[in-house]
Design a protein around this nucleic acid. Structure first.
Lengths: 126, 126
DNA sequence: CAGTATCCGTGTTGATACTG
DNA sequence: CAGTATCAACACGGATACTG
């Protein structure tokens, strides 16, 4: 994304940017397995192999996805606070496609790295 | 993306970011129909309804995708220069998934907008 | 715990000018 | 035409401190 995105784009391009945003992708994939609490999501995303998401960005991402109707937020009125996030039907449809794409990149990683070596070697021969 | 992306992520997450990057998405979709020249791509993307891509970002996006082996660059040694971009087999696989996602957002746009109104109204009642 | 608010660095982005 | 180079602005993203 850019989570918010410029408001000058046609609407569906904005949704696409939300869904394909850096953290949006990972949130959707994590929620595909099961619902998660806020901090659980943070840890799960961090464990995925990249840099962890900051609280701020996770909040922002979740709010955007919730507003788009992809994520459901269930805040329980207890102390300490407990909030569960899950996918809506709409969100599940999106998440499945996003996961398919993510799995594809894993499967094809070898081809990509081979292509990169070829590309880099061709340029090294300056 | 962020076309280049931080180098601290696991490799396949980087490729995912290239593919789902703001301009990467649109380039892949445009090339799915047929090969395109540089300026043709710029116009096609601008015509899609959003803000046009700058030369710099288009160049950067194309180079990243070429390096990843998704896009093929065919520079003809003529004057004036003529460069055709097309999808590789790998790129086509990615592009088809990306297009599927883009089409999905179009189909579901009504649901998203309804969700947004509900969300916004719930907050307006402050 | 689950946020919100604020500040601030830096990377991405885009204009502009220039080259082959 | 198809880029490259340079610069400036801005938004993203993170760190931190604070709240309910």
């Amino acid at each position: 994304m850019t989570v918010s995105g410029s408001e000058a784009l046609c609407p569906h391009r904005l949704v696409l940017e939300h869904v394909t945003s850096r953290w949006g992708v990972l949130v959707l994939i994590e929620l595909l397995d099961r619902s998660r609490r806020f901090s659980e999501l943070r840890r799960a995303i961090g464990a995925q192999g990249g840099r962890a998401v900051s609280e701020k960005m996770l909040t922002q991402t979740l709010q955007t996805l919730e507003r788009d109707g992809l994520v459901h937020r269930d805040a329980k009125p207890v102390i300490p606070p407990r909030v569960d996030y899950s996918l809506t039907g709409l969100g599940r449809e999106a998440a499945e496609q996003v996961r398919a794409l993510a799995l594809w990149t894993q499967r094809r990683m070898d081809d990509v790295e081979r292509a990169r070596r070829t590309y880099d070697e061709a340029r090294a021969a300056s």
